[in-house]
Nucleic acid binder design. Structure first.
Lengths: 343, 343
DNA sequence: ATGAAAGCGCTAACAA
DNA sequence: TTGTTAGCGCTTTCAT
């Protein structure tokens, strides 16, 4: 394996002690420019590379941050991850990825990460933190930020899901729709829950009674139900309601909305003429499909999460901060006014 | 930070030596069941966690593999990464991600990774390995596998791009099209180059002269031109050819095909009535858009790459192996027979 | 400013 | 089987 050269050989070759070598490695001020240069030259000549793990062991920190992330195949996560990656790159840290499929895997990831000095900070994505790990996490005093999730004890960056859902529903309401359905996702997801709440709140505010029959999720629970299939299934269910079917829908994610659109077209229902749809996320394809949706600043959320983590690593005693981005309504072509149809 | 408990405290508490503790930690056979149990109990009770970096330093290997990956926001990479993540999880290894935007960043990633013992293996995605780093990589004798790329000196897993492109073009030819355009991407990408070759080969085989005018790439070079914008731009260029415009197109990726579709619909050209399109990749949305395309088994490629890496870590002297998957033509609704149109 | 020496927490060779 | 000891390659006092 790559070079067996240690600071000892460098020290010998440069005619100095290992302490000095270490000092130039760490840019310690008290080294004369000449010595520094001499040591640097030797290092270059011998192609010296410090041994990261030895450094980490001696320094008691790792300069790595760990991201625990479910389903990272989907566009929403990929985009946030891109922001994270960018931020971490700037810090010069390593990013280690723990992909998890369920809560128990998350717990084992946490256990691994909690090893002393293993990681300097953690990012949790879209996960309801299992309450049983919270005490351990707190006492570990490990900097943590939650992304697209929430817990009172930890920093978080997320989007105002309820408000976004509220605005989305309001938009539909303002178009004259009064029978508005919602396609939701698993309530295991905090975001899904909040979006449902926002929808309910908007109805209520407008004097419309919330009806359970108008809220459906697909059978496919992959990715907490945030998938195309689920959207398609849910919409198919709605179509089966026949004349009872709502004229407009708020869908809790774009990917589900895409599925819903497919179901609609399969049943020869036109958008926005027959049915109006508003999604959530504003993934790249939403624009392509001209989908009206609530935009989340995903990349920026990723960057912000890293920045927050950096701040907390610097000062572990800061107050807990919950950074909330406001989703923005992007009006495109999937919503139209409510029109009473003849049959 | 998390527990300050070391094998010393465990040893003391259990009334054994640290050697024994280490042995139970590493499942060394020569420990009596009773001692083992006793030590295990103490560990559990004291919530002991080994210090990874100390282990790595002493063991001379890291049980981590590093993935160097460009643009990992896109679906193609995300999907491969999912396979990678799955495979690595099974091995119990760590996955550290180096996102790179260009070749120089790739080189610095390589330098970092080459530190002794830092990583046990590397995965390079979709990158033409800079020839200048090849000698260093070889002499480091670090297990490496290239994914969606090729170099004679290193293991690789990829798809038969040229054959795929050939088949795609053949498909169009078999439908009666003879003026077939291609939307390509940056020739910095090996895959893009191979796909272009396959297209040329198919034309040639069918006695059709290759014409430079019929091959275009968009101006947007983000992600090597594998992006929606670029596809849209390229197709717009084609549309400007008026009656000279090809009746069918092979597009080097689905994401570009999606852009091309958008451009077409903007110009009121219908698919497949006016224009036929075949893409490459078979990303999730291809199905939704009913796009005819060449499928790459992305997830499987990711898994295979890890498996190959594991094999090479086990036996560094194996022969170099290039694993090639065959892309598969998925016929959907974007291709139709060539029809001579009246004007 | 610099060298020597004592850790960091573990593994592994060596005795016993 | 088990304890002791010498590394692993670095950082960081503590003298000088």
């Amino acid at each position: 394996m790559a070079s067996r050269i240690t600071i000892y050989e460098i020290a010998r070759a440069a005619g100095v002690g290992i302490g000095t070598v270490s000092r130039v490695l760490n840019n310690h001020p008290s080294v004369t420019p000449e010595t520094r240069q001499k040591v640097r030259d030797v290092m270059r000549r011998m192609r010296y590379q410090p041994h990261t793990y030895a450094q980490r062991l001696a320094r008691h920190h790792s300069e790595t941050i760990c991201a625990v992330i479910p389903f990272f195949t989907n566009y929403f996560f990929a985009e946030i991850l891109r922001g994270v990656q960018e931020g971490i790159g700037r810090l010069g840290y390593d990013l280690v990825l723990f992909g998890v499929n369920d809560v128990s895997q998350a717990e084992s990831s946490i256990a691994r990460a909690l090893q002393r000095g293993r990681v300097d900070g953690m990012l949790f994505f879209s996960m309801r933190l299992p309450e049983k790990v919270v005490p351990r996490l707190r006492e570990a005093r490990l900097p943590i930020v939650l992304v697209d999730s929430y817990h009172p004890d930890f920093d978080s960056v997320s989007v105002a899901n309820a408000n976004g859902a509220y605005d989305a529903t309001e938009h539909l309401l303002s178009l004259g729709h009064c029978r508005i359905g919602m396609i939701t996702a698993s309530q295991l997801s905090i975001s899904a829950g909040e979006r449902l709440d926002g929808y309910k709140r908007a109805l209520e505010k407008n004097g419309i009674r919330y009806s359970k029959e108008l809220v459906k999720a697909g059978a496919n629970t992959k990715e907490h139900g945030f998938n195309r299939e689920a959207g398609c299934e849910a919409m198919s269910d709605f179509v089966r309601m026949g004349s009872e079917m709502p004229s407009a829908f708020f869908v809790s994610s774009d990917i589900q909305a895409i599925g819903a659109l497919a179901a609609l077209s399969e049943h020869s229902l036109r958008v926005p003429d027959d049915v109006s749809i508003v999604g959530f996320d504003d993934i790249e394809l939403a624009e392509h499909l001209r989908l009206t949706t609530m935009r989340q600043p995903m990349y920026e959320m990723g960057e912000t999460a890293v920045e927050r983590l950096r701040a907390r690593m610097e000062d572990p005693d800061m107050d807990v901060l919950h950074r909330t981005f406001s989703p923005q309504l992007i009006v495109r072509d999937t919503c139209g006014p409510f029109i009473v149809k003849g049959r």
